[in-house]
Amino acid sequence: MADEGIAGSVAAPGGGDRPSTIVGRSPWQIFWMRFRRDRVALGAGVFLVLLAALAITAPLIARDLVHHDPNALFRDTLNEIGLPKVGPSAEFWFGVDTSGRDVFVRTIYGARTSLLVALLSTGFAVVLGILLGSLAGYLGGWVDTVISRAIDLTLSLPVLLFSIGIAAACSIKAEGCLGGLIQPGISLVTAIIALFTWPYIGRIVRGQVLTIRNKEFIEAARAMGASTGRILLRDVLPNLAAPIIVYGTLIIPSNILFEAALSFLGVGIPPTTPSWGRMISDAARGQLYTVAWWMLFFPGMALVLTTLAFNLVGDGLRDALDPRTQVTG
């Protein structure tokens, strides 16, 4: 306790909360120190920030920089049998597609759809997973049995088949399902993806809660008279932050692919809304990419790079948040 004497003499009188000579670091400060050293993850993070900026400003770029609307048809860029003849050029940076639409503008608009759907669905999945997972883990008993079986059941469903089925059922009427809560389009796709991804979070949260529940500090909180809700919120949840952030980040790329797969199959997102999955599906139809490679290459690359970047950031977060891994250098 030698440092206490020093700290005591240095601190200003009356200022009990002044930092002493040895500055205490919060767990988040330690995390940031470690994450900053991971160049790859940091680079991937920068890429994602740029992508997000591009997606947010897509309408401005389309109107003021490229002067092409995502659904504007440039008939003169197609040849006599309707195949695109203009590849990447000064006018059309990423070329045009079979309808004569600007692939660049549609790609950055596609980023909007992909990121929006992926983030929204991951957000819902995380909230649902935390809620059900922590209840199952903390309360145990029949609550755990019911929630755990629900997780098993959901994970055992053939995902694509059910997605197509649900999408079809919800698209029959214009007002959608659940009393208009879920409309055909982005909200429908988001709901479907969240429905099939929350079990992954739920299962991890349940496992973590099971280990934390038996820690003595939880007993201490109960002995002090804290309610179950307060314990879950103030003692359990903060200790779950690390795994939730990591798995949430790792689920985003798979949800991007999920949305792309649904769009590829022509489910959910209306054809006029640009989406990477649908663009790839357009390019694949009739093996169009053999004539117009840019139709496949650019949305494909966007998809690959975005997925990769989210995965790298997720790995970096895991390394930085897990005290067992050693970041050297």
């Binding site: 820690k215 003595e216 002995a223 103030r234 003692d235 903060p238 200790n239």
Partner: peptide
């Protein structure tokens, strides 16, 4: 909860009995 004011506990493991995030 009212009763808990009058009885408290000190735990065995000083590492597990304090929430590391607080």
């Amino acid at each position: 909860r009212e009763l808990r004011r009058h009885m408290q506990m000190i735990f065995q493991d000083p590492f597990a009995s304090l929430n590391p995030r607080r």
